[in-house]
Computed example of a mutant assay.
Amino acid sequence: MRAIINYAMDNWRGADRRQLITENPMRALSVNRLWNKEYPKSTRIHESQLERFFDTLEEFRTRSVRSQTEIAISYALEVALFTGLRATEVISLTKRQVDFKEGVFYLPKTKNGDPLVLPLTPHVESILFARYQSVPENCDFLFPSANYRQHIRESRKTIINLKRLSASDGQEALSLNFHDMRRTFASLAETCNVGKYMIKRLMNHRSGGGGCDVTGDYMHFSHKDILKKSIEIERYILKQGRQLSDNESDNLNDELRRVLDELDDEAKRSWLALMNK
């Protein structure tokens, strides 16, 4: 409303070019600090709800009759949980944006205008590879609409059905909007102590840029660093959701021992100090 009145003040003039509106009445709201403050949403999936999240997806895909579009949306939601990407960034993914050989996927344009390259973690890679195989060869989209000519445009009805299914046992429905997945990823990444700047990098939030936090301008991460932290987050989500079998946990322990064996004494001491914080 304030912007509309400002526009009228500048453009509506009398015969002598005098302003017809000389003061914006909305200014009183600013002077008296009466603007309705909008608080950011905080809905997300908590660690204790992750198992129900995966159970809901599994039941949705296998125990009921669903269209291929609905199934695709359920997988897009899962990718969003493990990557923190926005809905359109996931749903618009094409085959050409995923390089299984190099182990990366690429977003040429994101909300802030910057391109983004992310590593393919094992679980995300398995989902995207399954999507690659499930769509027709002449379809370029990994999450296509029913006619396979474009990516999915509407996901609200499917999200509503998933929420209802998550509450089928009388429990409170899970928060399953795409941005809930983004908030969940950020929260769990923080729990994993991957670092504020790494979280910003993974979620494609700009650091520095002339603001107060100029340190972000100096933070640059290698592909190896990003992959390592992404796998840590992925493993944590899978473990909390009880999606890792005993064999997988044993393999993870073996991998951890192998990594530790390769560290020199100084690096081991640094690692122990970090773990004890």
Rank of each mutant, 00 (worst) to 15 (best):
R44A: 05
I45A: 01
H46Y: 12
H46P: 00
H46R: 06
E47G: 03
E47I: 09
E47S: 14
S48C: 06
Q49Y: 01
Q49S: 02
L50V: 03
L50M: 03
L50C: 02
R52L: 13
R52H: 06
R52T: 13
R52E: 06
F53N: 02
F53T: 05
T56G: 07
L57W: 07
L57V: 15
F60D: 03
R61H: 08
T62D: 08
T62P: 00
S64C: 06
V65G: 01
R66P: 01
S67E: 10
Q68A: 05
T69A: 13
T69Q: 12
T69K: 14
I73F: 04
S74V: 07
S74W: 08
A76L: 10
A76I: 12
L77C: 10
E78C: 13
E78Y: 09
E78N: 14
V79G: 02
A80W: 11
A80G: 09
T83H: 07
T83E: 06
T83A: 07
G84V: 05
G84W: 06
A87S: 11
A87V: 01
T88G: 02
V90D: 02
I91L: 15
I91K: 04
S92N: 11
S92Y: 00
L93W: 02
L93Y: 06
T94K: 15
R96L: 05
R96M: 02
R96C: 03
Q97T: 00
Q97S: 13
V98Q: 04
V98H: 02
V98L: 08
D99I: 07
D99A: 11
K101T: 14
K101V: 13
E102K: 15
E102I: 06
G103P: 11
G103D: 08
Y106E: 11
P108T: 09
K109R: 14
K109Y: 07
K109V: 09
T110S: 14
D114Y: 07
D114T: 14
D114P: 00
P115A: 14
P115E: 15
L116T: 03
V117Y: 09
V117F: 05
L118K: 09
L120H: 09
L120R: 07
T121K: 09
T121S: 14
T121A: 09
H123V: 07
H123Y: 15
V124S: 04
E125N: 06
S126M: 10
I127D: 00
L128R: 12
F129L: 10
A130F: 00
R131K: 13
Y132M: 06
Y132K: 12
Q133F: 00
